[in-house]
Design a protein around this nucleic acid. Structure first.
Lengths: 308, 308
DNA sequence: ACGGGGTCATGCCGAGAAGGCATGATCGCT
DNA sequence: AGCGATCATGCCTTCTCGGCATGACCCCGT
C-alpha cells in the first residue's frame, strides 16, 4: 500500500514556497521555477495543509506572507541551502563534480552587488559554477565554520569571528531610521538620532544577527541615550513588520528600503550617521583561487557602488 | 513536461539512507521504515545515482558505508533533524499542535540511556510527544542556541557553553584506548596511556566535537607526553575507521565500542583513566515542565547505569 | 459601464514515481 | 547439500505531480 495522507514536507515544496515568498506572487514564482502557475499554486497549498498552518494570506489578488510564513521562510532557505551544499560537497569530494563557489549573503545585496559580480565572472570563465544562498548572518557564520560556504557577506562582525576567518572590507553602509507611517517624524526629510530618544525600539535578535544589538546600543549611546528595546526580530523583514505594526522604531541599513515595508517609513539620519563596514568573510585555510577572484571582483564592485 | 532526469534529493531517500546506514542492512532498514526491502533498496540506489556517488559498498551480502557514505551520514541526519524541528516548531507556534520534546544526543547513548527513559516517560504520560535526533555535538549546540532543541546530551562542554546554557551532570564516562587490530598492544587486557607515547594519534575535529581535542591533549599531558595528532575525524565512526585503517591510535568512551569497528580494538586503560562528565544541556530561558521531568528521569537512569 | 489583462484556484488527464509482490542470485550456517 | 538470510530485478498497481483548460475575481483604462 503506497502511503497515503503523508504529512512530510518535500524539497520542491520548500523551493516553491521560497520562490512565492520572494516574488510575492504565485505566477512569478512559477515562472522562476519553470513550472506552470497551477502546479506551484497546488504544491504551496499542499505544503500548507501538511504543515497545518497557513503560510500566505490570499488577498483576492496578490499574496502576502502570514506571520507563520515569515517565520518559516528563513528556515526553508536554510534547509535548501544545506541540501544543496551537502550534496554538492559530496559530489565534489567523492565524485567527479567540478568545484562550485558557494556564497552566502542577505537577500538585499543580491541585485546590485552579488548578481552583477557573478554575471561578470561567469562571462570571463564560462565553466565557473556558483551557488548563492540568502541566509541570516548567524546561519552564514555557522556554515562558513563548517566549510559549507566559501564566503559570506556580513556586517557587525564580532572580534572572535575576525580572528577565526579572513576578512576583506567591501564598503561602508549608512543606516536610516525606520518609523511607523503614522509617526510624527515619518514625513521629515531627515532627523537626528537623539530625536528618537524616548521611543520604544525594535532590534534584531542576537541569535540571527550576532552583534547587531550592541551596534544599536553603541549608536544610541553616542547620541547620548540608552534605547529601550521592547522587541527583537529574527530577520530584517520581521523587524520592518514590527515597526509597521507600531511596536517601536528601528534603524536599518539604507539598502533595506528595497524590502517590502508597507506601513513603515525610512527617514535619513543626520550626522553622525551610524554605519557599518560590509565585509567579505572566508575560512582561513581554504581560500581557493575562485574565492579570491570573487573577493577582488566584489570589492571592486562595492567601491563603484559607494562612489556612485 | 514533467521534469525528467531530476538530480534533486528527496527527504524519504535521506531517511532510507540513514536507516540503512544505522542498521547496516537494507532489510532491517526497510522494516524500520515500514516499506518492503525492494522499495528501500531501489530508493537508496536512486539516491546514489542522483548524487553520482556510491554511499554503500555492496559486499555480496551485508552492506557497508563507503567513505563518502560515512561523510554524508551526519549531513543527512542534520537535514532530517532540521526539517523535523522546523516544521514541528511551526505547527506548535502557529498551529494547534501539542508541545513536542526535542532531544539531541549521540547515537551510542540511544539504546541504554535515552530510549528507556523515553519509554518510561511515555508510559506515565501517554500524551507526551518526543523527537529524538542523533547529531554531532556541535550541531546539537547550534540547534540548542536557536531553540531548535529542548535538551542535548553532551560531554566536553566548553566554559562559554556552561554559562550560556543550564547544565545538569548525568554520569561519568571512562575512556578506553583504540588501536588497530594488528597493533602489538591490541591483545593486551589493559594498557597505560603513556605506552602510546610514541604513536600517531587520531582525534575528533573541533568543528564537530568542540573541546574534544583539548581533552585528548590534557589526558596525554597528565600522562607526561604530547600526542602527535596526524588526523582528525568528523564523527566517532570516522575516527574508528581511521584507526582501523592504521592511521594511528585514539581514545574513545567505552560505550562507543558498540559502534561497528572492524579492524580496531578497544583496550582498557590503567588508572588514571581519562573520563568526562556526561551532561544534559538546555537553553537557560525555556526549561519547560516536560524538559525538567526528562532531565530528572535521565539523571536517575544515568545513576543506575553508573552503579550497575 | 464594460471589456481586457492581470491575479489565483479548480477540474481533468497523462506520464512518471514509488511501493508491493514474486523471483533470482549469492552467501553463511547447520 | 539444504535452509535461511541477504540484496537486486522485473512486473504491476496506485498515487502524485505537472500540464492544459477553465473559472472566479480584481484592477484599470477607454
Amino acid at each position: 500500500m503506497p502511503r497515503r495522507h503523508d504529512r512530510s514536507v518535500e524539497f520542491h515544496q520548500l523551493r516553491y514556497f521560497v520562490a512565492a515568498a520572494e516574488t510575492g506572487s504565485i505566477s512569478a514564482a512559477a515562472r522562476r521555477e519553470h513550472v506552470t502557475q497551477p502546479a506551484l499554486s497546488r504544491q504551496v497549498a499542499l505544503l500548507e495543509t501538511r504543515l497545518g498552518v497557513d503560510l500566505f494570506e490570499r488577498k483576492k489578488q496578490r499574496i502576502a506572507l502570514t506571520d507563520a510564513g515569515r517565520w518559516f521562510l528563513p528556515k526553508a532557505r536554510q534547509m535548501l541551502c544545506d541540501a544543496a551544499t551537502s550534496t554538492q560537497q559530496l559530489r565534489e569530494h567523492f565524485g567527479k563534480a567540478r568545484r562550485t563557489l558557494r556564497i552566502g549573503f542577505l537577500g538585499t545585496f543580491l541585485d546590485d552587488l552579488v548578481a552583477p559580480v557573478v554575471r561578470d565572472l561567469k562571462k570571463k570563465d564560462r565553466s565557473l559554477a556558483v551557488s548563492l544562498f540568502d541566509l541570516a548572518p548567524s546561519a552564514q557564520l555557522e556554515r562558513l565554520a563548517a566549510h559549507d560556504l566559501d564566503a559570506a557577506i556580513l556586517a557587525n562582525l564580532e572580534p572572535r569571528h575576525r580572528e577565526q576567518f579572513t576578512v576583506r572590507t567591501l564598503s561602508r553602509h549608512r543606516f536610516a531610521a525606520v518609523v511607523p507611517d503614522a509617526h510624527p517624524l515619518a514625513s521629515r526629510s531627515s532627523i537626528a538620532l537623539d530625536e528618537l530618544r524616548g521611543e520604544d525600539w525594535v532590534s534584531l535578535s542576537d541569535l540571527a544577527f550576532p552583534g547587531r544589538r550592541d551596534f544599536l546600543r553603541a549608536a544610541c549611546s553616542a547620541a547620548g541615550f540608552e534605547p529601550r528595546i521592547v522587541a527583537e526580530a529574527d530577520s530584517v523583514g520581521l523587524m520592518l513588520g514590527a515597526v509597521a505594526a507600531g511596536e517601536g522604531v528601528a534603524i536599518a541599513p539604507r539598502h533595506s528600503e528595497k524590502l517590502p515595508h508597507a506601513g513603515a517609513a525610512f527617514v535619513a539620519l543626520k550626522a553622525p550617521v551610524p554605519a557599518v563596514d560590509l565585509v567579505l568573510v572566508s575560512p582561513r585555510d581554504a581560500m581557493g583561487g575562485e574565492t579570491a577572484a570573487f573577493g577582488r571582483a566584489l570589492a571592486e564592485r562595492a567601491k563603484v557602488l559607494a562612489d556612485g
